[in-house]
């Protein structure tokens, strides 16, 4: 894991150093940046030093969670990211929960009734779900559920008079605002995961110990709940852990569409303004969250399957 982190930081550094002009010279053309901020930048990047020294300095700084200063407003990149992170995490965790609790039952049931109308219907749904561009789904849901029917707000995360609400109404208001984004974010992965759990379930049902259990006349509910479900959950947990990068990439799109002040939209704004320190910081944090997802998936795997030792 440590070599991976070093590699990640090295590539992020490399990508940004390909940028035309140094970060400081970019800021020279930006009248919004004060002289003081420019000096801070000069000092931070130590641009008089050779490239490898610059890299090590930068690495030392990111270990302290210091990504430098934004070229747009001169604020600390780390604090800009930190204030945007909670919204993105909330939305993504909520969509992971929705994916988990709908995709698996859907997949299991269509596997159990393989070849039935329900199974064929979900198969078609899965292929369509895979192919649906999330930003199109977002636009359609905005158009119909938001504008036409007026059921959901289509931008922001709070109402105008949010400040005067009692706390429970604040929570409800927030949930109401993020419901469309969460639905859109979960839709794509929903299809993939239900397909996957269906295939795994069919594999398990074909195993000898399950067929033995059926042959000796155990009730099917007992076979499924006691013996067949656990081996299906294992690979599904891994897939959930691996879906982190996709969800983060998706955040850029739906946060931009729904004007949600999260990490994804921050990234989009950074790209639009060519704010390289911000982009670099978000790139590193995105990769770190991906690694964290893999790591949590590994942990869950070990917890669920005692045969796997961590030393592996």
């Amino acid at each position: 894991m440590v070599p991976l982190l070093i590699g990640i930081s090295f590539i992020s550094f490399l990508v940004i150093h390909l940028a035309p002009g140094s970060p400081v010279s970019v800021s020279l053309f930006n009248p919004k940046i004060s002289l003081e901020a420019r000096e801070k930048l000069n000092k931070l990047y130590g641009l008089d030093k050779p490239v490898h020294i610059q890299y090590f300095n930068w690495l030392k700084n990111i270990l302290k969670f210091d990504f430098g200063y934004s070229l747009v407003d001169g604020r600390k990149v780390s604090s800009k990211i930190l204030e945007r992170l909670p919204v993105t995490l909330t939305i993504n965790i909520l969509s992971l929960l929705i994916i988990f609790f709908t995709a698996i039952p859907l997949g299991l049931y269509s596997g159990w009734r393989k070849g039935s109308f329900f199974d064929r219907f979900t198969t078609i749904f899965v292929f369509i779900g895979f192919a649906t561009p999330s930003f199109w789904l977002a636009l359609l849901s905005m158009q119909f559920l938001g504008v036409k029917l007026g059921w959901f707000p289509i931008s922001g995360i709070t109402s105008i008079d949010f400040e005067y609400f009692p706390w429970y109404k604040k929570v409800l208001d927030f949930l109401w605002h993020i419901s469309l984004p969460v639905l859109v974010a979960s839709f794509g992965s929903l299809a993939g995961l239900s397909r996957y759990s269906r295939e795994k379930f069919l594999e398990v049902l074909d195993k000898e110990y399950i067929r033995t259990a059926f042959a000796k006349g155990l009730p099917s509910s007992q076979i499924i709940y006691k013996h067949a479900l656990k081996p299906v959950f294992l690979p599904v947990i891994t897939i959930l852990g691996l879906s982190v990068p996709g969800l983060l990439g998706g955040s850029v799109i739906f946060e931009t569409i729904f004007s949600i002040p999260g990490m994804g939209r921050l990234f989009y704004e950074g790209v639009m303004m060519r704010d390289y320190p911000l982009i670099m910081g978000l790139l590193v944090i995105g990769a770190f969250l991906t690694l964290l997802g893999n790591f949590l998936a590994d942990l869950a795997y070990i917890w669920a399957d005692p045969r796997i030792k961590y030393s592996k």
Binding site: G249, L283, G286
Partner: peptide, 22 residues
């Protein structure tokens, strides 16, 4: 293969957007 692993750690859409920003 280590290089491949490292590349896989980046959310690919993030990486693409960063390159576009250049």
């Amino acid at each position: 293969m280590r290089f491949t692993d490292i590349m896989l750690c980046f959310p690919s859409f993030f990486l693409i957007l960063s390159l576009v920003a250049l």
